[in-house]
């Protein structure tokens, strides 16, 4: 039996989901941005904890919170992200336990780590890389010129001078280093999502 079968039904009602978005916003309307941000953090957390189904575990966490909100009406813990982390820890523990219970079924599974590729795989890898490059080209074209300029400057390799260069860029744009980092990261993350979507990975 796969771990997915053991998990609770992930479907939520529209009302429960909206309530979750409002609770995560914590009084500051973000139009769903906060949900995306918290979900992203949870995926990274599960991934760093070595869980292969990090995406599903993040959804599981948020669905549980949505159900609690639906049933109880209010969650007092502040900020909401702290409560998300507490629930995520339980979800992680349950997943670890499930994994231990199902070890015999996974014996034949190929490990996730890099392994030597065969000739056919190398050909596929090359085609995949080519396809990704075309995708990146297309995605770069969707950026505004100022966004392109920002990422070129922000991520340029300048070794020791990187910090000064970024500071100078922030000053020129009239924003703090933090704001600049977030801006650059958003553009890069958007590009990555665009490439993944284009390459048919999502």
């Amino acid at each position: 039996m796969s771990p997915e079968v053991l998990r609770e039904d992930p479907k939520l009602t529209q009302i429960a989901f909206t309530r979750l978005l409002v609770w995560l916003d914590d009084g500051i309307e973000s139009h769903g941005e906060r949900y995306i941000e918290v979900r992203r953090r949870l995926v990274s957390y599960f991934d760093r904890r070595g869980r292969p189904s990090a995406d599903e575990l993040a959804d599981d966490t948020l669905n549980r919170i949505a159900r609690t909100l639906d049933e109880v009406g209010v969650i007092e813990t502040k900020p909401p992200a702290r409560y998300c982390y507490v629930v995520a820890k339980f979800v992680l523990l349950e997943d670890l336990r499930r994994d231990r219970r199902h070890v015999p079924l996974d014996e034949g599974r190929v490990p996730d780590g890099p392994r030597p590729a065969g000739r056919r795989e190398l050909g596929e890898e090359r085609a995949d890389r080519e396809h990704r490059l075309d995708c990146l080209d297309r995605c770069l074209e969707t950026l505004k010129p100022e966004q392109r300029e920002l990422i070129v400057e922000y991520y340029a390799e300048v070794r020791q001078k990187k910090i000064e260069r970024r500071r100078e860029l922030g000053k020129r744009l009239g924003i703090t280093m933090n704001a600049l980092a977030i801006r650059a990261w958003r553009i890069r993350e958007g590009l990555m999502t665009c490439v993944q979507t284009c390459a048919g990975r999502e």
């Binding site: 780590g113 990704r132 070129v152 890069r188 990555m192 490439v195």
Partner: peptide, 29 residues
Amino acid sequence: LSSPLRRERVAFARSFVSAVDRAQPPAAR
């Protein structure tokens, strides 16, 4: 690199970084 999600980040970074590096005109620095 033991995680597929992180390998995905590295795969993207390969293309991204080479694009950024090549787009650096010396005069624009």
